[in-house]
Design a protein around this nucleic acid. Structure first.
Length: 275
DNA sequence: CGTTAAACGCAACGGATAAA
DNA sequence: TTTATCCGTTGCGTTTAACG
């Protein structure tokens, strides 16, 4: 899909891109051949951008594309960079300025890693370093700045933020809302949200209750793992919407084995104390 | 609570197109 | 050729959504 992407060229929007596709111009190679037939953009400019695009792809540099595409179009680079992509979600102690990261879940499509404040949180930076693309939900506004503040560093990964990718497809209402619209069922974790995750952390800190922590981690992991499924869903829907080759569609991923089981007794207890 | 980007409405620009 | 109009793209304010 990246090869037939032209809307990252200044002066080419969605309608021009679609028009070119309908004329059979649906690859960088073909556009390069026809570059003097494109009005509004000079042949030299087209050659320049396509050269940079090919170079970025060959060099495994996804940032070039996320910087030149709109956030909502960044799904286009996913298959090409899947081998260097991670899915990430953080939990925090609240939304206030002084809130801290409590846990992080990091998923590469195979393995889940978790990081816990006070235990191994500082290992995160080293581990995340191996990835070039980071998939989140609202991470551009929330998770990334939060992490950058905590670790006093800048994350270099190209960002794929599903909030804007899914909103473009009409999927709104937060991560949980999008999951419902996509037909994803959360099982026993249904009814747990970010605010409840704050309470689970407090329970763990106050009583050193390992079951509360494991419930929190189970929730954190569920959010993170579902990001992959949602991205594949968004990718496939866009392929159909843009009338591209059906063969471009991706298989739905299998979720990884469960690492933690939510403790329903703990959940019940906290709910009782707070409602 | 702050952070961030999209959406929205609106205006401006420039090339394309067609009529005079 | 000149002129008027149309269309796609871009830019600029304000507002809205989503995160725990």
């Amino acid at each position: 899909m990246l090869y037939s992407t032209f809307c990252h060229i200044p002066g080419i929007g969605y309608s021009t891109e679609k028009k070119l596709w309908n004329e059979g111009i649906d690859s960088w190679q073909r556009l390069l051949e026809c570059r003097d037939r494109i009005s509004r953009v000079s042949p030299h400019e087209i050659e320049n951008v396509l050269h940079l695009s090919a170079e970025a792809l060959a060099a495994d540099n996804p940032t070039y594309f996320t910087q030149n595409l709109k956030t909502r179009d960044s799904w286009r680079l996913f298959p090409h960079f899947r081998h260097v992509t991670c899915f990430l979600d953080i939990e925090t102690s609240g939304l206030r300025e002084d809130a801290e990261i409590t846990t992080i879940a990091l998923y590469d499509g195979e393995q889940v890693r978790t990081y816990i404040n006070g235990e191994n949180l500082e290992d995160f930076l080293n581990d995340v370093d191996q990835f070039k693309v980071m998939v989140t939900y609202n991470g551009i506004s929330f998770d990334v700045p939060f992490i950058e503040r905590h670790f006093r560093t800048r994350l270099t990964q190209a960002q794929l933020d599903l909030r804007f990718i899914l909103a473009q497809l009409g999927f709104r209402g937060g991560l949980k809302g999008c999951e419902k619209l996509a037909g994803i069922n959360r099982g026993t974790l249904d009814g747990i949200d970010g605010a409840f995750a704050v309470l689970l952390w407090r329970e763990f800190e106050r009583y050193n209750d390992r079951r509360a922590l494991e419930t929190l981690l189970a929730y954190n992991i569920e959010d993170t793992v579902n990001l992959e499924r949602l991205l594949v869903e968004a990718y496939n829907r866009n392929i159909r919407l843009l009338e591209r080759e059906p063969s471009l569609e991706l298989d739905y991923p299998n979720p990884p084995p469960l690492l933690y089981v939510p403790d329903l007794e703990t959940v019940r207890k906290i709910k009782q104390a707070n409602y």
